[in-house]
Amino acid sequence: MSTRNSGNDLPVRPIDRILAFMSLGLLALAIVCFFAIMIGSATGMEHADFAGGVWPAVSATVYIAPILAFLMLMTVLISTFVRRARANRGG
């Protein structure tokens, strides 16, 4: 059980908020791209080529966006832990 008051909480920095929402946005984008690929494959797009147009970017987003979102979230967590440790030390 914590002995700290809720009034002593550290304020949320704008960069933390931006990174958190960007992480959420990238995850949502990856999910949308995943479903776009699933729907495109299921609707019988034999005439469409997945190697051309916007499809390579959509499929790359499915692989890259979750990794970037995870890294952003880890950045937020580590910076929060560092700030709390500095605040608890008094410096």
Score class of each variant (00 low, 15 high):
R84N: 10
L19Q: 00
A51Y: 06
T61C: 13
A69N: 00
F35P: 02
R83H: 03
L73M: 14
V82N: 05
L24H: 07
I18E: 09
Y63C: 13
L29H: 07
P56S: 05
G44W: 06
P66C: 04
H47Q: 14
S79D: 14
M38G: 03
S41R: 13
F34T: 13
V12Q: 08
V62H: 04
T3Y: 07
T43P: 01
A28Y: 05
V76T: 05
L68H: 03
N8R: 06
A28P: 00
L68S: 12
P14W: 08
G52M: 14
T75Y: 09
L73S: 13
G53A: 08
V76K: 00
S79M: 05
G7T: 12
S2E: 07
A57K: 13
F81S: 08
N8D: 13
N88E: 15
S41Q: 15
T80S: 09
G25N: 08
G40L: 03
S6F: 08
S41A: 15
V82W: 09
H47V: 12
L71F: 12
G52S: 15
L71Y: 13
S6E: 11
A60C: 10
C33P: 00
I37E: 03
L26S: 01
E46P: 08
S23T: 02
I31W: 09
D49P: 02
L73G: 05
P11S: 09
T3F: 14
D49C: 03
F35E: 11
V62D: 01
R89F: 10
R84W: 11
V32F: 12
I64C: 12
S79Q: 05
A60W: 05
S6G: 04
G52K: 15
L24G: 14
F81Q: 07
M74A: 15
A20P: 00
F21Y: 15
P11K: 02
Y63M: 15
V12F: 04
R83S: 06
G53S: 09
L29R: 07
F34P: 00
A36C: 10
T75K: 05
A42M: 14
D16T: 02
A85E: 08
G91R: 15
D9Q: 10
L29Q: 12
S23L: 02
W55T: 02
I67T: 04
D9S: 06
F21E: 15
S2A: 14
Y63R: 12
T75Q: 13
T3P: 02
F34E: 07
R17Y: 13
P14I: 14
